[in-house]
């Protein structure tokens, strides 16, 4: 499946991703270069103290020097330190938050693919029945609902109504208690993130299943005497997934960007939450770090999706 060519391809892509990450962070760095100093100025700092702080962050030097230092640090994976919490390095924070976001995003993607595929296959196998119409309508509703609306309703149902109905026996803490301890921690936000995309996957799976089921090789499989379930899963579904993967890239992007809001609603300590917090705190160094983290996450996700092609479709080789 993975040949030497694939390895070379992966290395090339990683180089490109690194360049893209540098590009994005440079863009943001240069775009907001005046803001960090202004932000510090308003922080009740006066006179020499302000000068000293500026000096500490190197903000008193000419822009080109600042930029070169920034680039140099980037090469060492150093994103500088927080403007608000002096002395706290940003890189470990961003890395930790990236892994949290990636984890939630991955579960969301599993929802997307799992739910989307199952609904799509069922709708295709029951074409033009009430079940098909029900699933198709649900899917339009699904992809029309913004993920933060879904997140809100989930909180309303699980966090408010269920608690009221059960007189507090079902208690749901919005927040991040650790890992998979509470359904709120990862399953609900992942569902909110994944569901709109699942609707799109369902629509596409249905359409491509219907097309694949017409293909000659399905007839061959039936002529061999294979069981219907084998034909559906092994022969039809795998081929039906090929066009679906083409949208997986954009859908993964939707999940990543959706995290910006959904993490805030559910209090998940990921990149999205940091994004909002850092803007609110005007901690511009962290803002740059967050965008850098996003650029890396996006690049790696796209690479992952492209590699998925190779797994699903043997005709594709890099």
């Amino acid at each position: 499946m993975f040949t030497r060519g694939t390895l070379i391809y992966i290395v090339q892509r990683l180089v490109l991703i690194t360049l893209a990450v540098l590009g994005v962070s440079s863009l943001v760095f240069l775009g907001i270069h005046r803001l960090p100093g202004d932000a510090l100025f308003s922080e009740h700092l006066r006179g020499t103290q302000y000068e000293l702080t500026l000096h500490h962050y190197g903000l008193d030097r000419p822009l080109w020097q600042q930029y070169l230092t920034f680039l140099g640090n980037m090469f060492h994976g150093d994103l500088g330190e927080s403007l608000v919490n002096r002395g706290v390095p940003i890189t470990p924070i961003v890395l930790r938050e990236m892994s949290v976001s990636a984890e939630v995003g991955l579960v969301a993607l599993i929802f997307t693919i799992g739910l989307g595929m199952s609904f799509g296959v069922i709708a295709a196998l029951r074409q033009n029945t009430w079940l098909d119409y029900l699933l198709s309508t649900t899917s339009v509703i699904g992809y029309s609902m913004p993920n933060f609306v879904i997140a809100t309703f989930l909180i309303l149902v699980f966090g408010v109504w269920l608690e009221n109905i059960t007189h507090g026996n079902f208690y749901f803490e919005i927040g991040w208690p650790g890992r998979y301890g509470s359904i709120g921690a990862i399953w609900l936000p992942a569902f909110a993130l994944g569901f709109p995309s699942a609707s799109i996957v369902a629509r596409m799976t249905r359409a491509s299943m219907l097309e694949v089921l017409q293909q000659d090789f399905i007839r061959t499989a039936r002529a061999k005497g294979l069981a219907p379930a084998t034909i559906t899963i092994r022969h039809a579904l795998r081929n039906a997934l090929i066009p679906v993967i083409t949208v997986l890239g954009p859908l993964a992007m939707a999940i990543i960007t959706g995290g910006v809001v959904v993490e805030n609603i559910f209090g998940i300590p990921g990149l999205g939450k940091e994004f909002a917090t850092s803007i609110l705190n005007r901690d511009y160094n962290v803002v740059i770090g967050v965008f850098t983290g996003y650029a890396a996450l996006v690049g790696l996700t796209n690479l992952g999706v492209d590699l998925l092609y190779v797994v699903i479709d043997p005709r594709i080789r890099y």
């Binding site: 000659d216 007839r219 061959t220 061999k224 022969h235 795998r238 081929n239 699903i312 479709d313």
Partner: peptide, 16 residues
């Protein structure tokens, strides 16, 4: 009873 079809290109599953 086995059957052999006209177009082997489309009659074989491309991903297996």
């Amino acid at each position: 009873i086995a059957m052999i079809f006209q177009d082997p290109q489309s009659s074989l599953n491309p991903v297996l």
